[in-house]
């Protein structure tokens, strides 16, 4: 997880702000198209033919083919373990299907994320009927992941600099400190919102 909260998580952020026909499409259409592709990949017996669509869409979106294809490979470690089990249990056809179906599905989601900024995606999700509270919580969570993670990282460095005694109690105490400072940060954020005239709930 430590490596995953690296600048890597902002790759989508950069890609999604480029300009292309796919980027300017209404996010609601892209969400529905993505779901349709996912369902087709899961159920259609000839779904492997959809793989030909991937490079076309990536090219239309003017996105880098290899980094995006590599990004979707994040699902493979989990899949390989279970495909291995399934092949071991005498069902190699299903094992192969698990591998390419999960990879292709991840690629569709990556394409959606790389062509739509997350905040626009969340707004469109709200307009498609996702509860407002859930969307607001996702906005806040996404905005503060980097902030709180950086703080956790600094606390870790500080603990190492003090001699890095490793024990269960020390970890628990530092997690409690991180909780306390997150709580205080939430209160500051709320006051900042009030002082800018926030009426309460976002609409």
């Amino acid at each position: 997880m430590a490596q995953r909260i690296a600048p890597d998580i902002f790759a989508f952020d950069e890609w999604s702000r480029r300009k292309s026909p796919l980027h300017t499409l209404d996010p609601r259409a892209k969400i529905l198209a993505c779901l349709a592709l996912l369902i087709a990949t899961g159920t259609w017996p000839l779904a492997w033919t959809l793989a030909a669509l991937a490079p076309i869409l990536i090219f239309t979106a003017r996105l880098p083919l290899l980094p995006l294809a590599f990004r979707a490979g994040v699902v493979l470690p989990f899949t390989i373990v279970f495909a291995g089990f399934t092949a071991w249990m005498g069902d190699p056809a299903r094992a192969v299907a698990l591998l390419w179906k999960s990879y292709l599905s991840a690629l569709w989601v990556c394409l959606l994320m790389a062509s739509t900024p997350l905040e626009r995606l969340l707004e469109s999700a709200a307009r498609l009927g996702v509860p407002r509270l859930l969307v607001d919580v996702m906005h806040f969570t996404w905005r503060y992941i980097a902030v709180i993670s950086a703080q956790a990282w600094r606390m870790r460095t500080a603990a190492l600099a003090r001699g890095g005694e490793k024990s269960f109690q020390v970890s628990a105490a530092s997690l409690a400190v991180l909780f306390a400072s997150s709580y205080a940060r939430a209160e500051r954020i709320h006051r900042a919102m009030l002082s800018r005239g926030a009426a309460g709930a976002t609409r």
């Binding site: 909260i5 919580v137 906005h139 806040f140 969570t141 905005r143 997150s182 209160e187």
Partner: peptide, 12 residues
């Protein structure tokens, strides 16, 4: 509301 959001980031 901000508390819920920040707690999501805290769990990450």
């Amino acid at each position: 509301l901000p508390l819920m959001g920040v707690m999501g980031a805290f769990v990450f």
